[in-house]
Design a protein around this nucleic acid. Structure first.
Lengths: 187, 187
DNA sequence: GGTTAAGTCGAGGGCTGCCTCGACTTTCGT
DNA sequence: ACGAAAGTCGAGGCAGCCCTCGACTTAACC
């Protein structure tokens, strides 16, 4: 049962795009909690119009982040294609947090449990799937501590989100210290 | 020039104590950002009276936390008295975060830069002094990575604050993974 | 017990952010 | 070029939190 909504009127389509652009920009700059009024202002659209197009903050998230989360798949594929299991896992983490560091909104999405939009959830699940394989490969190769699990990555992700917020220039160093601790043997 | 304020009236002293107790409790339960109105309510005192005794949130922090921060000195002394440099440093971190995990307010105080009260600041400085000695000893003994510094502890503290907030049952595990990574040689 | 400084109270004003709704304006098919 | 449907607008109500101030109450000292 597809609810075939008729096409948007020209001005409506224009406003929708302006809102999306403004939201994407502000989420990236200031995080998910930016006031909706600021988004409306930057889009040069009234608050009423904003609510017409996106009745909730979640609606913005659902419209903006699935595309951005595709990057997760890319770095997942890249890691899976890396032959050395240690390099694959460590590189995955590095790429993941580099992504988070570039976009405060994405940082928030991945760190909190909030995002309910099904497309966001499924993208996260795919990411977790990649991570699980990488962990399994690392453990099997004896290069990762055997009790390491996806839950540890989740915890790390929240910790990294905080480090990225507080001191954007320090996260690589922090990660490298953490990561060294995962190795059961030296290179 | 000591501004010898005359003693408080009996009812005022009583209210002051009720406010302190309420604030201590709510800070510990809900963190530093608890609404001042809630503190007044729990103390069974009007909001006006609250402001009379503690004109700012900082005033509460200054009244409550110096005592609590004394615990920092205790664990610092304990660590300095530990002969094995590795054990001393690792134990210090463990004790420090155990403290944070017990008190959301303390967790906030140590993680944010906020607290301006001189007594709070100096307690933090003393703590940092202890940590610096412990790091130096660890590095000298070749048991800590030689580039480790107090700034890394600061970053770790913010990260741990987040982990403690999100998943109070996971912080020990997270810390142990991080900590293992500091060792330059196996036990 | 009367005086008075000290203390208490809470309504209310300010601010920020969320969200709604009815009056107005624009598009678009005919 | 007209009318209906679609869209836009923004004032304003609501809520949470901050903080103040003037009217009232009370402890403390004589």
């Amino acid at each position: 049962m597809v609810t075939a909504s008729r096409p948007l009127r020209a001005d409506a389509a224009r406003n929708r795009e302006k809102l999306l652009a403004a939201a994407a920009q502000l989420f990236a700059e200031r995080g998910l909690d930016v006031p909706l009024e600021h988004i409306a202002r930057r889009a040069e659209v009234s608050i009423g119009t904003l609510y017409k197009h996106f009745p909730t903050r979640e609606a913005f998230v659902a419209a903006i982040f699935p595309e951005r989360l595709a990057a997760l798949d890319v770095i997942g594929e890249k890691a899976l294609a890396t032959p050395d299991p240690w390099q694959a896992f460590a590189g995955y983490l590095e790429d993941l947090y580099a992504l988070q560091a570039e976009d405060r909104g994405l940082n928030d999405v991945l760190a909190r449990d909030l995002p309910n939009a099904p497309e966001v959830v499924s993208a996260c699940h795919r990411g977790a799937g990649h991570a699980e394989i990488l962990i399994a490969r690392g453990v099997e190769a004896g290069v990762l501590r055997p009790d390491y699990s996806i839950a540890d990555v989740a915890t790390l992700t929240r910790a990294m989100a905080q480090v990225i917020r507080d001191s954007p220039s320090e996260w690589r160093r922090f990660l490298s210290i953490y990561v060294e601790g995962l190795r059961t043997q030296s290179p």
